[in-house]
Design a protein around this nucleic acid. Structure first.
Length: 421
RNA sequence: GCGAAUGUAGCUCAGUGGUUAGAGUACCAGAUUGUGGAUCUGGGCGUCGCGGGUUCAAAUCCCGUCAUUCGCCCCA
C-alpha cells in the first residue's frame, strides 16, 4: 500500500519538538496572567463572510489565500486565516462589548490556515499566539499590546529583534492622505511595478510596503502618512511612543510600515528578527478602531497582534536559545523473560501510582539489548525482574547513569527511585 | 501565481550510459546462555519519487508528473 503523507504545508510536531511548544505556550500563559488577559478559544471554521468583511476583500489573504469550501448544507465556510476577526465575532455574539463594561482582554493560541506556497517560515497550517484588547482607545493600550509581544519574545531569550512602529491615521485623516497618495502615484504610474500600478486605486497605502527596487526609489518622493495625521492621531501616536519609552520598550518609527490587513487604524507595528530567512516578521498588529462596528458590533476601539509560533521557534533555534528538554522516562522495567512480565507489570503500576514516569519492556530481547533500549528512551533507572527477584520480592534497580545496581524491596522501590533521582 | 534546486537503504549521502547499485551511520544476531558507552564477525538493507520515451543497455540522457526545499509575491 502506498504511504499517505501529510497535506502540503502542514506539519506534524512530536517529541522532543512538542516539549518546546509546551515551554513556549506555558511562558505565554504566565505572561498573559501577569497582564490579566483571559484565554479565548474560537472555532477554526467560520462563515466566509466574516473574513471577507473583517479582513477586507482587497487583501491578498481574502483574494487568494483562504481555505474556503461549501459544507454539506451549502454554506460557504472558511478555515480561519487569522485570529482577530473570529475573536471580535465571538465577543459581539456574546455581548461582551456593551458600552460601560470593563475592557475585554483576551488571548489565543491556535492554528491558522492560508493557502500559500510553503517555504521557510511560511506554512499552510501555522500557529499564532495573539491578543485582542477591546474597549479603549487609550494609547496605553497600544503600548501594553506592544509590550506583551516584546516581553514574550524577550523572555524566550530572542535578541536582535526590532519593533517598528507607524501610525496609519484614522477615518478622518486617512482618506485625505489616501487621496494625495493616489494623486502622487497616478502621476508616476508607469514607473511602478505592475502590482503597485493596480494598488493605486485599490489600496495605495500598500505601495509604501513594496520591496521592488524601482518602487522603493519612487516612494522616496511620495507623501508620508506620518506628516498628514490629524491632530488627534498625532497626539495619540506621540503618547504611544511616550508610553513605550517609559517602560523601556525599544522601537523605531517606520513611516513606510503598512500592514496587509485592511482593518488597521492609527497604530501599526511589526516585530522582525535578524535570525529568520526571507519571512522575517515574528509578529505584527495594531489598532483597529473600525473593525468591531464593521462586523455589526457597537462602535468599539481595539488593538491587538498576532505572533507566529513556528517563526519564533526558527529564531530560537538559530540563536541557540531553545532550552534542553528532558524526554523519556525515569524508570524502565525489564522482565528478563515473559515469566516475569506479570510481576513486572505490577511494579510498573506501583511506580506510576507514585508518579514516577515509567514504562516496561514488552518485547523479548536479551538483557543487554533491554539496557540499550532503556538508555535510548532516556531512562535514569532500569528495574530488573528475573527469577531471583521474584523469589526475594525485591527487584534489582540499576542506575543507568552511575552503572551501579542494588536490590530494593518491592515496598521501598518507589521511594528508592525518588530519593536517588 | 512565478522562478530555481533537489528526490538513491530508516537517516546523511556517493554513484554523469555498461556485471548482481555503494559508503557512513542506525538496526538485528553472535563473540558475552542475567547486564547498556568499546572492539570484532555475520546479516536484511532498495518499486534508484512516479509515468512515459531514446538505447543492445538508463539511477545516469529526454519529456511529463508528483513531492520537498529555497527565493519572488505576501505575511505570522
Amino acid at each position: 500500500m502506498e504511504k499517505i503523507s501529510a497535506v502540503k504545508g502542514m506539519q506534524d510536531i512530536f517529541q522532543p519538538e512538542s516539549g518546546l511548544w509546551q515551554y513556549i505556550e506555558s511562558l505565554i500563559r504566565d505572561e498573559m496572567s501577569a497582564f490579566a488577559y483571559g484565554e479565548i478559544r474560537t472555532p477554526i471554521l467560520e462563515k466566509t463572510e466574516l473574513f471577507v468583511r473583517g479582513v477586507g476583500d482587497a487583501t491578498d489573504i481574502v483574494k487568494k489565500e483562504m481555505y474556503t469550501f461549501s459544507d454539506k448544507g451549502g454554506r460557504s465556510v472558511t478555515m480561519r486565516p487569522e485570529g482577530t476577526a473570529p475573536v471580535v465575532r465571538a465577543m459581539n455574539e456574546h455581548g461582551l462589548l456593551t458600552s460601560g463594561d470593563p475592557i475585554s482582554k483576551y488571548y489565543y493560541i491556535g492554528p491558522m490556515f492560508r493557502y500559500e506556497r510553503p517555504q521557510k517560515g511560511r506554512l499552510r497550517q501555522f500557529h499564532q499566539f495573539g491578543v485582542e484588547c477591546c474597549g479603549s482607545e487609550s494609547p496605553y493600550i497600544d503600548a501594553e499590546v506592544i509590550q506583551i509581544l516584546y516581553n514574550v519574545l524577550t523572555k524566550l531569550k530572542l535578541s536582535d529583534i526590532s519593533v517598528r512602529l507607524n501610525s496609519l491615521g484614522c477615518a478622518e485623516c486617512r482618506p485625505v492622505f489616501r487621496q494625495s497618495a493616489e494623486k502622487y502615484f497616478s502621476g508616476i504610474k508607469d514607473k511602478l511595478c505592475p502590482e503597485c500600478a493596480e494598488r493605486i486605486t485599490i489600496n495605495p497605502l500598500r505601495i509604501y510596503d513594496c520591496k521592488t527596487p524601482s518602487c522603493k526609489e519612487n516612494i522616496a518622493g511620495a507623501p508620508v502618512i506620518l506628516e498628514h495625521l490629524c491632530a488627534g492621531c498625532k497626539d495619540h501616536f506621540n503618547e504611544v511612543k511616550y508610553a513605550l519609552n517609559s517602560i523601556k520598550v525599544p522601537f523605531v518609527t517606520d513611516a513606510l510600515l503598512v500592514r496587509g490587513l485592511d482593518y488597521y487604524t492609527r497604530t501599526a507595528f511589526e516585530v522582525t528578527s535578524k535570525h529568520l530567512g526571507a519571512q522575517d516578521a515574528l509578529g505584527g498588529g495594531g489598532r483597529y478602531d473600525g473593525l468591531i462596528s464593521e462586523l455589526g458590533g457597537p462602535k468599539t476601539p481595539a488593538a491587538g497582534f498576532g505572533m507566529g509560533i513556528e517563526r519564533v521557534i526558527i529564531a530560537m533555534k538559530n540563536q541557540n536559545v531553545a532550552p534542553e528538554l528532558k524526554t523519556g522516562c525515569t524508570a524502565y522495567i525489564v522482565p528478563l523473560t515473559k515469566n516475569e512480565a506479570g510481576y513486572a507489570f505490577k511494579l510498573l503500576d506501583i511506580l506510576r501510582k507514585a508518579n514516577i514516569s515509567s514504562q516496561m519492556a514488552v518485547s523479548e530481547k536479551k538483557a543487554g539489548a533491554h539496557f540499550k533500549d532503556a538508555e535510548k528512551t532516556g531512562a535514569d533507572f532500569a528495574v530488573i525482574v528475573g527469577e531471583d527477584e521474584i523469589k526475594n520480592g525485591a527487584p534489582t534497580v540499576k542506575d543507568l547513569r552511575k552503572r551501579t545496581q542494588q536490590s530494593v524491596s518491592e515496598t521501598e522501590l518507589a521511594n528508592y527511585i525518588a530519593r536517588n533521582l
